[in-house]
Simulated scan of single mutants.
Amino acid sequence: MVAALGEIQGGFRIFPYKGNVPALSDLVGGQVAMSFATLAPALPFIKGGQLVPIATLGKTRAQALPNTPTLAEAGLPGVEVRNWTGMLAPAGTPLPIREKLAMQVDRTMQSPTVKTMLEAQGLTYTRMGPDAFDGFIRAESIKWKKVVDQANIRAE
């Protein structure tokens, strides 16, 4: 989910969005005051001068925005959000097949063409084998379940 902050009757309210495109459209159009967005779709607006980055949410500064501080550097330590994409296979897929697929994906992602394309979008590739990726997904699920529970977020 993507969220944006908008002014309403002298105060501010968080508005949920069903993706970056509508949130960024409202942000550029002035309907909301700020938004948390994935870097890739926001980058053209930043480069075009329509948006100003305040902070990135990673552990380290984004390669595409080296002069933009992390949220921790900007004074809010302990908040780290990592946007990730991964390749999944059906449960029960034998480990040798998963390892072979991971190796092929790694080879593709390391190619100069793909690396250049990713960098242009402000993205970085991190290789994780099947076991490491499984552990990462489990850790992310636990982390975000705590956030959802603490904020008392409920599906509508």
Score class of each variant (00 low, 15 high):
Phe12Met: 10
Glu119Ala: 15
Lys18Ala: 15
Leu57Gln: 02
Gly19Phe: 02
Thr68Asn: 15
Pro96Phe: 04
Met109Arg: 07
Lys143Gly: 09
Asp26Gly: 03
Pro96Asn: 02
Phe15Ser: 12
Ile142Val: 13
Lys146Gln: 11
Phe136Ser: 09
Gln110Asn: 13
Val32Leu: 00
Ala132Ile: 02
Tyr17His: 00
Ser25Met: 12
Gly29Tyr: 07
Ala74Met: 04
Gly49Cys: 06
Lys143Gln: 12
Val79Glu: 00
Trp84Arg: 00
Gly29Cys: 06
Pro96Lys: 10
Ala37Trp: 09
Thr113Asn: 05
Ala151Arg: 02
Leu118Cys: 02
Gln150Leu: 13
Pro69Trp: 07
Ser111Gln: 05
Gln104Cys: 04
Lys59Gly: 15
Arg138Phe: 03
Lys143Tyr: 13
Arg107Pro: 01
Met34Gly: 13
Lys115Pro: 09
Ala132Asp: 08
Ala64Val: 11
Leu88Asp: 02
Ala40Asn: 00
Ser25Val: 14
Thr38Met: 01
Gly129Met: 10
Leu88Lys: 14
Thr70Ala: 11
Asn20Trp: 07
Thr126Lys: 07
Arg82Glu: 15
Lys18Thr: 15
Glu99Leu: 11
Gln121Cys: 07
Ile137Ser: 01
Ile97Asn: 06
Gly10Val: 10
Arg138His: 10
Val28Cys: 04
Met1Tyr: 05
Phe15Tyr: 14
Phe136Lys: 08
Gln50Lys: 14
Leu51Thr: 06
Gly11Cys: 05
Thr108Cys: 06
Asp131Ser: 14
Arg98Leu: 12
Met34His: 06
Thr70Arg: 05
Gly6Asn: 07
Gly122Lys: 04
Val105His: 03
Gly58Glu: 07
Ser25Ala: 15
Glu99Ser: 03
Phe45Arg: 07
Thr38Ser: 14
Ala155Asn: 12
Lys59Gln: 14
Lys143Phe: 12
Ile97Thr: 03
Ala72Gly: 12
Ala72His: 11
Phe15Gln: 14
Thr113Lys: 09
Ala139Trp: 07
Val147Glu: 13
Lys115Tyr: 03
Gly48Phe: 08
Gly6Phe: 12
Leu65Trp: 10
Ile14Lys: 08
Val52Gly: 08
Thr60Tyr: 09
Pro77Thr: 01
Pro96Asp: 00
Ala40His: 04
Asp134Phe: 04
Arg82Asn: 12
Ala120Thr: 10
Leu39Pro: 00
Asp106Gln: 10
Lys18Glu: 15
Leu57Ile: 10
Pro77Ile: 06
Glu80Ala: 05
Gly10Ser: 01
Asp106Arg: 04
Ala33Arg: 11
Phe45Ser: 01
Asp131Thr: 14
Val105Asp: 01
Phe133Thr: 06
Pro16Arg: 08
Leu5Pro: 01
Thr56Arg: 06
Gly129Trp: 07
Arg82Leu: 10
Pro16Ala: 08
Ala74His: 10
Val52Cys: 01
Pro22Ile: 02
Ile137Ala: 09
Ala55Asn: 04
Gln31Asp: 08
Ile137Glu: 09
Pro41Trp: 00
Ile142Glu: 12
Arg61Thr: 02
